[in-house]
Every structure is written in structure tokens, then in C-alpha cells.
């Protein structure tokens, strides 16, 4: 087994006075795709937001490359190599595609041209539209831009919050094949999804989250055929 890049121990997160995450623990091995699946309100987003430093966890340990980063601010966390593709894409609508990518590399001081070229290579559509305002892109293109923008910080760990939300099935397939390609380049991926089918067939490891607790774990392909998971999340 490869070593662990991110290790969560007994993480508790409050969100709006409610305990959204009630003490979960899981590991993300380096170079893997790990997915958290679960219904609305299971605590998936809160977990990601806590790792990214956007909310302060109530308690618990978030160990990234051996250091506890729980409670650190986002600026420090991003410069350590964690990036978040937020739910609902949240690209900057009035900035051009190119400017969006530049903002993604905000924490970096070195030359970003190779990364821009890589993103344009992954998403040729973005290159075509590089001088267009982000808000004028279609939903799928905006998701590509959100992923590209996150890659610009040259992350070691990329977290994605519902990348398939509101996208046509064909585009979802494209996005997931690109996720795999990014992963092949050595970026570890932590993915949360409601589209359990797609997520589990892509992931090396899956965790099932229910009302703030992890109830099941296993390789993605195994969970995909698990009867309880099938009944609850795959609708078959």
C-alpha cells in the first residue's frame, strides 16, 4: 500500500448550530481517488469545508502529510497543496476564463505558463474561450473551468464537491474521465457525490456517510454491488 496523504481522525463539525459531522475518521492514500457518498445533509460538504479551512472543525484531527492542519486558515492550507472545487462550480462570472485561471494560481509565485498550457490541453474548450467572461460559459464549461482553476494551484490533493451537479449525463462522463486523467498525473482526489454510481465506479475507495457518521467502507467496485448501497443510493 502507498502511504497516506490525508488522515481524518474523529472529526466533528458544527454547521449553523447543528452537529453536521459527528466524529468521522477516514484515510486518503496518496495517489488514490477516494469518494464520500451519502444523501443530502449527511455531512459530506461540511467535511470538505473543514478540511479546506473554510469552517473551523469543532474537534478532531486533520492530518495532511503528517501535520495537523485542523483549524488553520485557508490561505495556509491552499499553499500546502490542498485545493477545493466548490459545489455549484462558483467560478468568477465577471472575470475572463484566463483571469479565473490566474486567480487559481494566486498563492504561487513561480511560472504558471506550463500549468495554464496543461489546463488548456485537458480542456481545449477553455482555450477557445480564454478571453470570454466566465459567466458566459455553459454549465459543463463552467465545471471544466472550476476544475482547471483548482489545478492551477498545483495541488497534491484536489477535493471536489459534487462535480456532476446539474450537468447532462454525457458531460458528467467527460468530467469523470478527466478526473481520472488528472489522478494519473499524481494528484490525489477526494470526491463527494450524490451520483453514487459514477463516483463509485471511478473511485479506488468509497465511504458511505449517513447523518454525520461513516456507516460503510470498501473499494469502490465492491460498494457498487453491495446490496445495502444499491438499495439506498443507486436506486436499483
Amino acid at each position: 500500500m502507498s502511504d497516506t496523504i490525508l488522515s481524518i481522525k474523529d472529526l466533528k463539525v458544527n454547521y449553523g448550530g447543528i452537529e453536521a459531522v459527528k466524529g468521522i475518521s477516514f484515510d486518503v492514500p496518496k495517489g488514490h481517488i477516494v469518494t464520500l457518498i451519502g444523501a443530502n445533509g449527511a455531512g459530506k460538504s461540511s467535511t470538505l469545508r473543514a478540511i479546506a479551512g473554510l469552517v473551523k472543525p469543532k474537534s478532531g484531527v486533520i492530518e495532511f502529510e503528517g501535520d495537523n492542519i485542523a483549524g488553520k486558515d485557508t490561505t495556509a492550507i491552499v499553499s500546502r497543496g490542498i485545493t477545493l472545487v466548490p459545489e455549484g462550480r462558483r467560478i468568477f462570472p465577471d472575470l475572463t476564463v484566463y483571469e479565473n485561471l490566474r486567480v487559481g494560481a494566486y498563492m504561487r509565485k513561480d511560472d504558471i505558463t506550463p500549468d495554464i498550457n496543461w489546463v488548456y490541453e485537458l480542456f481545449p474548450r477553455l482555450k477557445e474561450r480564454s478571453w470570454q467572461a466566465g459567466g458566459t460559459l455553459s454549465g459543463g464549461e463552467q465545471q471544466m473551468l472550476a476544475v482547471g482553476r483548482a489545478l492551477m494551484s498545483r495541488p497534491k490533493l484536489m477535493m471536489m464537491d459534487e462535480p456532476s451537479l446539474g450537468l447532462a449525463p454525457l458531460i458528467v462522463r467527460d468530467i469523470f474521465s478527466i478526473i481520472k486523467e488528472i489522478n494519473k498525473r499524481g494528484v490525489t482526489i477526494l470526491l463527494i457525490e450524490q451520483n453514487a454510481n459514477m463516483a463509485l465506479s471511478t473511485a479506488d475507495t468509497g465511504y458511505v456517510l449517513e447523518t454525520g457518521r461513516i456507516t460503510m467502507t470498501g473499494p469502490g467496485k465492491e460498494l457498487l454491488v453491495n446490496e445495502a448501497v444499491k438499495a439506498a443510493y443507486l436506486g436499483t
Partner: peptide, 14 residues
């Protein structure tokens, strides 16, 4: 401009 467009996303960019 990023902050103007979307504070949360800007924060997530560091």
C-alpha cells in the same frame, strides 16, 4: 475582482 464575484470561491483559492 475575485472577491467581488464570489467571496467563498475566492477564499477557497487561498
Amino acid at each position: 475582482k475575485a472577491i467581488r464575484d464570489d467571496e467563498v470561491a475566492a477564499e477557497a483559492m487561498g
